[in-house]
Design a protein around this nucleic acid. Structure first.
Length: 424
RNA sequence: GGAGAGAUGGCAGAGUGGUCGAUUGCGGCAGUCUUGAAAACUGUUGAUGUGAAAGCAUCCGGGGGUUCGAAUCCCUCUCUCUCCGCCA
């Protein structure tokens, strides 16, 4: 959620930057500014009204104390009248604030200067590429065939006990999951992130804090009887740990990591290209989250990007980093880098991480602030990134490392799996 | 699930209808003292809105009500604790 004060002060530049999202937000923004004037006016009227009523009430108290009962009784109707007006003013104020909020929810974050123009994935900028395409020969198989051949993951069993998109990992397949999770968590803790194991369900306030609510309910599983949401990413519980918190400046940066399963309904996005592990309703992910000083957030975004690069290199996966264009960027982000690993048999790039700076967009909703050196409270910047999401990593590992003898495990992972080859 | 108690500032903990945004202690910050530190002493120390500022307004778990006036009384919701039951 953008800050109204920012909209007021930087109206033109914000509208210009938002144009990168291929939409003109000037109407909404002007309406927000207009409502804000009404809001401030009503607030002021209400304050004056209440001040008057407070003053009279005190006087009445004093009259009673000094035995001037008649004067006290005489003043009562005046306060009552003020209270009536106050009620109306309060209503106006409330309605104005609500209307303003509703509008604010519809405005996405302001793209950073370096976000490229563009509408679709093809307009994204490749900023880094590492490794080279594996040479697999004619008999290469996509991962959904490999997992059957080596008996690693069972989609049909998952469908039987739950439904489509809920795979069952078996034997070496399950072990590989555990190895990857531990490897990712170790890499993150080595980089200074503190490990957390948060709840997998969150309440409404948390969904709201990170921006999944009120607009994207449809993407989350909702447990109706208890009114809880299954988390679509660890970003939600981790970031919300600091909801309504005022940090000390020296506590920054807060660096958190956590492994969680993630649950996504993916309503409407099922279709071509979602075979096998490409898209699931439940998947595992290690997330990294940082709460930082606003002046440092872009340096830290680069640092997080380097961290994810390091992991992918250790996994020996051919990958690239792309800077998302305005049209492809998420609603809450100011700048996003996606990581895509090469899938050798599908012969296409698979998104395995998305690392973003949200600036104050989340913090404003979360009310996550810090006391700066002047003693003023100021919103932090929040950032997060997948480091990493498992299924597509598994898909790429299986496909790229297939050999006639079996599937080779990258050296960095062997201490975690305990085997260097998956054989039949 | 049954019975009871409770929710106040970073923490602990007073406050049961009027000057209470709230006594006090701890913690934090600044100062005095000290070569320095500790101790002691003194002062200071919540958030939000508005405003250039002074100030004004709002906030004592959330929402509603009674009253001229509510942290204090009433209703309701949520959460926490204790005992019992169940249980990985």
């Amino acid at each position: 959620m953008l800050q109204v004060s920012q909209l007021r002060e930087n109206r033109d530049s914000i509208i210009a930057a938002l144009a990168k999202r291929n939409k003109d937000f000037s109407q909404q923004i002007d309406e927000i500014i207009r409502l804000d004037e009404i809001r401030r006016k009503s607030q002021n009227d209400l304050d004056n009204n209440l001040a008057e009523a407070n003053k009279l009430s005190k006087e009445i108290g004093d009259f009673f104390k000094s035995g001037k009962k008649e004067q006290a009784e005489a003043a009562k109707p005046r306060v009552a009248a003020l209270k009536e007006t106050a009620k109306e003013l309060e209503q106006t104020l409330q309605q104005t604030e609500d209307a303003q909020k509703q509008l604010l929810y519809t405005i996405p974050n302001v793209p950073n200067d370096i976000v490229p123009n563009g509408k679709v994935a093809e307009d994204n900028q490749e900023v880094y590429i590492w490794g080279k395409m594996p040479q697999l020969g004619e008999h290469k198989k996509p991962h959904w065939e490999l997992i059957e051949e080596y008996d690693l993951i069972d989609f049909e069993l998952g469908t039987k006990i739950t439904g489509a998109g809920f795979p069952v990992y078996k034997g070496a397949g399950a072990k590989l999951q555990r190895a990857l999770i531990n490897f990712f968590l170790d890499e993150a803790t080595k980089a200074g992130y503190r490990e957390f194991q948060p709840p997998l369900m969150v309440n409404e306030a948390s969904g709201f804090g990170t921006g999944q609510l009120p607009d994207k309910e449809g993407q989350m599983y909702h447990v109706g009887v208890d009114d809880l949401y299954l988390i679509p990413t660890a970003e939600v519980p981790l970031t919300n740990l600091y909801r309504d918190v005022i940090l000390k400046e020296e506590q920054l940066p807060v660096k958190m990591t956590g492994y969680t399963p993630c649950f996504r309904r993916e309503a409407g996005s099922w279709g071509a290209h979602v075979r096998g592990l490409n898209r699931l309703h439940q998947f595992d992910k290690v997330e990294i989250v940082q709460l930082v000083h606003p002046e440092k957030s872009y340096g830290i975004l680069d640092e997080m990007v380097e961290h994810v690069k390091g992991i992918l290199e250790k996994l020996e996966l051919h990958f690239r980093v792309i800077r998302l264009c305005g049209g492809d960027m998420g609603f809450t982000s100011a700048l996003t880098y996606d990581f895509e690993a090469w899938s050798g048999a599908q012969e296409r790039w698979l998104e395995v991480s998305s690392t973003s700076n949200f600036e104050t967009f989340q913090a404003n909703r979360l009310k996550c602030r810090f006391k700066n050196s002047e003693g003023k409270t100021q919103l932090v910047h929040t950032l997060n990134g997948s480091a990493l999401a498992l299924p597509r990593i598994v898909a790429s590992l299986l496909e790229n490392n297939q050999t006639p003898e079996g599937i080779r495990i990258p050296a960095a992972l062997v201490p975690y799996t305990g085997f260097d080859m998956i054989r039949k």
